[in-house]
């Protein structure tokens, strides 16, 4: 079983990102579970959402404390909370930022990747919502979900042209990470 924690701020679509990740994994034929950190959500306040993906039915219902992957939607959160908390040593921290990982001053041996998701979302979708863009980067960096799974998840959640734009942003982010690792 792999576990994912998504950090964001209320209004950035962190719960939707988790839902889409779970939906994509489910489309790929795996078992999945996605849920928000429960609370009274407020716009702008730090929020978390969680995903579990497994080859077997998922029964555990606790929050995620030792994620394999952490996704950070808002780089300003790095100053507020310890996004590395509990992250596996061989895991990955994926951050929405136009800076390179080394420039962020994160003191860790764990693999860190950045993606200018906000810039990609503004260019392709035309709105500052980068949750779907990050999914493309996540798929490229980890291989845990397929592009086809993400496409199905987005088409289900956002039918029509909104979905198509989001899918275009996903593909751009996917290519960005793939080219970087060449």
């Amino acid at each position: 079983m792999i576990e994912i924690r998504v950090h964001g701020r209320g209004g950035q679509g962190s719960v939707t990102a988790a839902e889409l990740l779970g939906f994509a994994a489910h489309s790929d034929g795996k078992y999945a579970q996605a849920f928000p950190s429960f609370g009274s959500e407020r716009m702008g306040a730090p929020v978390q959402a969680f995903v579990r993906i497994s080859d077997k039915p998922i029964r555990i219902r606790s929050q995620v404390y030792k994620p394999n992957y952490v996704i950070v939607q808002d780089p300003t959160l790095l100053e507020v909370i310890n996004v590395l908390d509990g992250l596996h040593e061989e895991g990955l921290l994926l951050i929405n930022s136009k800076k390179k990982a080394a420039e962020l001053g994160i003191n860790t041996k764990i693999r860190v990747k950045t993606i200018p998701a906000m810039e990609i979302a503004m260019e392709v979708i035309g709105r500052p919502i980068m949750n779907t863009t990050l999914l493309g980067a996540f798929a490229a960096a980890t291989g845990e979900i397929s592009l086809d799974g993400i496409r199905k998840a987005i088409q289900h959640k956002f039918p029509g042209s909104v979905g198509e734009k989001n899918i275009a942003a996903v593909l751009k982010a996917f290519d960005f990470i793939k080219k970087e690792s060449l």
Binding site: A18, E19, G22, F23, H26, Y31, A32, Q33, A34, F35, P36, F38, I58, R61
Partner: peptide, 12 residues
Amino acid sequence: MDGFVLTHSFDP
């Protein structure tokens, strides 16, 4: 049905 734990969780 447990609030949040089940109601807000996405599952198959």
